[in-house]
Design a binder for these strands. Structure first.
Length: 568
DNA sequence: TATTCGAGCCAC
DNA sequence: AAACGTGGCTCGAATA
């Protein structure tokens, strides 16, 4: 059953049951509740359908415009749901997908549904932002989406609704998970974090002052350069280095490393310290950590490829330096699992390349590639694959490419085709049907102008450079995007299995962190081994869900630890 | 004074 | 090893 929440102009909510088994998605029951009573109703309806013994058709799927707003409010009221359909996220996928490109849904002009929702933080106490969206009709939008979904076809004209449905369900599940993880938070040891900062920077200074060790390091650099310099200003630093006779053309660390001068070592150390201070220092701690939890805001679908982005807190760039501050509660553990060589395995599975799939059965896929005889060392396999997936042409990557191409022709053909399509301004799609955006209007006009003869050689070369750049994007899009789909399925399956182990959100094992191909579960230590097994099983199931019949195994490196820094 | 922009470094 | 994909974040510099 689909249950659609339709906010009404008077502030109430019309709750409409829709039978998804019937054509046209008819409403079979309807009731209207006040906003105050909605959380209670959702709780009751969820409780009615117990997880065990219910057929999937009997399960509930809540349909709403925006999970970040509505589910956040439900969670704050202590209510969890099992499944949802996020109309905005699904819309974004369906409107852009090549599988639905010829439907009226995709070709219709933009509407208010395509506008970004207002920030959930602006009205955290409200289930819906009733200002403009009340004019939107969630039921009509749901029906439009299902019509488009039913009409989805591949290039060969065969129906493709099933895989696109899986993508939309996984995307929506991701939105639930993102909201739940923000509420649960990453367990954070503030004392340990402060110890790291104090060790590396000196004790926390008074407002407006730099910590002692950072100050001392800056003084060392100035002394070595023979001039007082503001190290935080790249312009001033470069000028000072050059007048001191250093052959620097920028202030990038990797370039400075090549230079032999007494100022370089302390300068590189200063940069490292300064970065820690500004990005994850005491100010960050004050802003983002409360009650022993780091609560970042995740943005599902925030990246074109389908990866998540984050909004504040820098959750997806948590430096290794401070990971020892991620520490489980007393009596609890962290189960940290990282998908091993995820993107190469994804490429092997989606291309159906037999030799690469064989390598993809190994615990370490790069070693598996060495075993096929294609390359001699793990390092060669790794750089060769990175080059294939990113479009690298230089260095070890470029050197390995011919051998990788010979050994795994089908896999390379897939990424090459994606690159060629991009170079010509065409759309490419992931395994489940998320499609790449078109290049910008400037890109396209420059491209067509260049192909229509005329234009200087320099102009034509500039256009070719642009084309190759977009080709590298589309090349990577198909692999990165499909990897993101696998990760969403993995996490969604795991979430459902974990739910069976506890009532509330945080009284038992729960997802605490997600980083593209890595998940963290915070769990009572007594359940850690069971959780680790579930993590493994769901990784395998996600592989079967996407690539039924493929021999590729999706292996994990799993660790049960107290501190994040002890994983891998 | 407020806003964008670019450099640089962090993550995968 | 080096410039080859996706992002966020922070700062100073440039712009309005």
């Amino acid at each position: 059953m689909l249950v659609v929440l339709c906010p009404q102009p008077d502030g109430s909510v019309s709750v409409r049951d829709v039978d998804r088994a019937q054509a046209g998605l008819p409403v079979v029951a309807e009731q209207t509740v006040s906003l105050d009573d909605l959380a209670g109703l959702v709780r009751e309806r969820e409780a009615e359908c117990t997880p065990e013994g219910t057929s999937p058709d009997a399960s509930l799927r809540w349909v709403w415009a925006d999970t970040a707003t509505t589910y956040r409010a439900l969670l704050d009221a202590g209510v969890r749901v099992t499944r949802c359909w996020d109309l905005r996220l699904c819309r974004a996928i369906l409107r852009a997908s090549a599988l639905t490109a010829r439907t009226g849904y995709a070709t219709a002009p933009r509407s208010a549904w395509d506008e970004a929702p207002t920030a959930a933080t602006a009205a955290p106490d409200r289930l819906f932002d009733l200002a403009p969206p009340v004019t939107l009709d969630p039921l009509a939008e749901l029906r439009d989406q299902h019509r488009a979904l039913d009409a989805a076809v591949g290039l060969d004209g065969r129906p493709e609704s099933a895989r696109l449905w899986l993508l939309l369900a996984a995307e929506s599940a991701g939105a639930l998970i993102a909201a739940e993880m923000t509420v649960a938070g990453v367990p954070w040891d503030v004392v340990e974090h402060d110890r790291i900062l104090t060790d590396l920077l000196g004790p926390r200074p008074a407002l407006g002052y730099r910590p002692a060790l950072l100050e001392a390091k800056a003084a060392q650099v100035s002394a070595a350069l023979g001039v007082e310099v503001n190290l935080d200003s790249p312009v001033e630093l470069l000028r000072s280095m050059r007048s001191a006779g250093l052959p620097a053309t920028s202030t990038r660390s990797w370039e400075l490393q090549q230079i032999d001068h007494p100022a370089i070592a302390p300068l590189l150390e200063y940069k490292k310290m300064s970065r820690l201070m500004t990005a994850n220092g005491w100010h960050w701690l004050d802003t983002w950590v409360a009650d022993g939890r780091f609560r970042p805001v995740y943005v599902p679908g925030g990246v074109v490829t389908g990866r998540w982005a984050s909004d504040g807190g820098g959750a997806l760039q948590l430096p290794h330096q401070i990971r020892s501050a991620v520490r489980s509660d007393p009596g609890w553990s962290l189960v940290v699992a990282d998908a091993a060589q995820l993107e190469p395995r994804i490429l092997a599975a989606m291309s159906g390349d037999a030799a690469m799939a064989e390598a993809g059965r190994a615990a370490d896929m790069y070693e598996g590639m060495v075993a096929t005889g294609a390359v001699e060392t793990r390092q060669q396999a790794k750089f060769g694959m990175l080059g294939a997936m990113y479009g690298g042409t230089q260095g070890e990557s470029g050197r390995m490419l011919p051998r990788i191409t010979r050994a795994f022709p089908q896999a390379l053909a897939l990424v090459e085709a994606a690159a060629r399509a991009g170079e010509q301004g065409e759309v490419v799609s992931t395994w489940l049907g998320r499609s790449s955006p078109l290049p910008s209007a400037e890109w396209r006009s420059a491209h067509s102008a260049a192909s229509a003869e005329g234009g200087s050689a320099a102009e034509q070369e500039a256009v070719r450079t642009q084309a190759r750049s977009w080709g590298r994007f589309t090349r990577n899009f198909v692999v990165q995007g499909t990897a993101a789909e696998w990760a969403l399925c993995w996490m969604s399956l795991l979430r459902l299995r974990l739910r069976a182990l506890s009532e509330g959100l945080t009284d038992g094992p729960h997802l605490a962190f997600f980083l593209h191909d890595e998940i963290m579960v915070h769990t009572p230590t007594g359940l850690a081994d069971e959780v680790a097994t579930l993590v493994q099983e769901t990784a395998h199931e996600a592989g079967r869900l996407l690539f039924e019949g493929s021999p590729v195994e999706f292996r994990l490196t799993t660790a049960v630890v107290t501190a994040y820094s002890d994983a891998k």
